[in-house]
Write a protein that binds this DNA or RNA. Structure first.
Lengths: 297, 297
DNA sequence: ACAAAAGTGTTCGTCTTACACCCATGC
DNA sequence: GCATGGGTGTAAGACGAACACTTTTGT
């Protein structure tokens, strides 16, 4: 095995926080890009290397981190100088002093993913998806669009974010696609990102939306103390969907995910809410415990 | 970014088939090892490279493949000549002509993972786990063992296979552990594998057990036609647990995962069973559809 | 007084679990 | 005839979805 089999390896971070909207951390400059850097010999592990790069490039110290996916298709090569492998990670934090300049909203990146409002972006997409479906002889495209985008009376599933991005990419409905048709305004198609960073973010979105349902990861995005309303708003922001208030509260409380601090908060107007804190012990105590996504309000 | 940041990259395959027992494909020789080889420039993608290596080393053409995890801790270095990155994949097949020599049973590798029999291996492990728990001042080890191994009246969760392996590794109860205590006979601790290949297999076991519950992946392990009894036996083999017969059948049939072929089979003695085939269309039609693991019989 | 958000109680329906039983074949 | 696995119906119960309503603050 000669040195010629060696490959450049890069670590890429999808760091998410929720501040009004769910947001992804970018480094400065355009096109938008994620914190990233090569894996170096002095990095003890890839996680350690990733933390180092994120801190160096953005000043942020990461808490929760998990591996996302490793990308290495040959056609990702950027400059012909051999292949590049990217190992991507998902990181979660909450923001103490929010300088949001580098924190790009998910829904600026993927406007169609927010189903809480009128779903305008999704509606704008639909005719172009239909057109793409028409081009093919078989109905595979139709079925695929139907499932991923919840068309024809099907259900919209938040965790299919990556599949939706892939459909749009193949259909030439995002600018970075090789078949880009330029039929969509930027408010609908979303912005370019460096290389395939937007795909990597989509992978993170899908993973987080899926995981939030069976593991208590939301709390990594919350401050030490929070109200149930804030917690629910955070879940809704991530899912891009409303959830049923009463059921949400019951699930959270009866699963013993949180405990009261005794304090209250009267920030948002209306009756003051009790404050809670995450019972971090349950990460050890139980293997399960997520926040289901009951249907809209 | 100089050439010094380049890193050797290896592809590793965990290929699973069920023939009586769930089995993992190994290449010849001892210690046991998984099919693997460096990622080469002429590989179009990592998946393609993986398929090439598996076919070259074992003659098997892979069907279903998904990425598992990427390992790169510095202390994995094997010969001091720089770091090695291993990108692991899970592959699923069924065996036409079973020459089982290279197909090692999961439960030879992880004897404690089979809960269908008396659970003898697990019982043999328990006192040594308790001893390890006693060594610590805090009760974190106790909680961790309790959750992962289903002690103290807790539930045994098949999909925690990786966590269980990690506990045993840290507790020095598997031979490859740096703290190996040599208190267990080989029938309980299982055999060595090359490098950290046993950890990689454990990752695959955990992933498959988890995935089988929410995605119809069992069928990748089945022949084109099968009886519901055979399907159930396959699920039970993978989960290492019995499932409730009637509920299993209802789930499979009402989810429209299968359709009758019209034929019957009278292989196993008793009344001949109807033959079914997987409705591969539902992979497109629906995003969901797994085989839940209802509790034992 | 009214808006706005917190918080409670209860009903309805579906999906899971479990039990009991009948059927068709080989030996 | 009996052992063995295939196959069916139905009742009990847990859990999620939904609705209606009360409480407590700020303006």
């Amino acid at each position: 095995m000669a040195r010629s089999d060696a490959v450049r390896t890069e670590l890429v971070a999808v760091v998410v926080a929720v501040e009004g909207m769910p947001r992804v951390l970018t480094t400065s400059g355009y096109p938008l890009q994620l914190p990233a850097g090569p894996l170096r010999d002095d990095h003890r592990s890839m996680q350690a290397g990733l933390r180092a790069w994120v801190e160096e490039q953005t000043g942020l110290r990461l808490g929760y981190v998990e591996q996302l996916y490793t990308f290495a298709d040959r056609d990702r090569a950027r400059d012909g100088s051999g292949r590049m492998i990217s190992v991507s990670y998902l990181g979660l934090t909450w923001l103490v002093n929010a300088d949001l300049e580098r924190w790009v909203s998910w829904y600026d990146l993927f406007p169609w993913e927010d189903q809480r409002d009128d779903g305008a972006a999704r509606a704008a997409l639909e005719p172009h998806l239909r057109a793409w479906v028409e081009e093919a002889e078989t109905d595979r495209r139709a079925v695929r669009c139907g499932v991923t985008f919840g068309l024809d009376g099907r259900e919209w599933l938040p965790e299919l974010a990556l599949q939706r991005y892939e459909v749009l990419y193949e259909a030439g409905l995002v600018p970075e696609s090789p078949d880009w048709r330029a039929v969509l305004p930027p408010e609908v198609s979303g912005p370019w990102m460096l290389h395939d960073h937007r795909r990597i973010v989509a992978t993170g979105v899908a993973r987080l939306r899926a995981k939030i349902q069976y593991r208590p990861v939301v709390f990594e995005l919350m401050p030490p103390e929070f109200t149930l309303g804030q917690l629910q708003a955070c879940v809704e922001a991530i899912a891009g969907q409303h959830v049923h208030k009463q059921n949400f509260r019951r699930i959270v409380e009866q699963q013993l995910l949180v405990e009261e601090t005794g304090g209250t908060s009267s920030e948002t107007g209306g009756r003051p809410a009790r404050l809670f804190r995450f019972r971090r012990e349950i990460l050890d105590e139980r293997a399960a415990g997520g926040t289901k996504l009951p249907r809209g309000r």
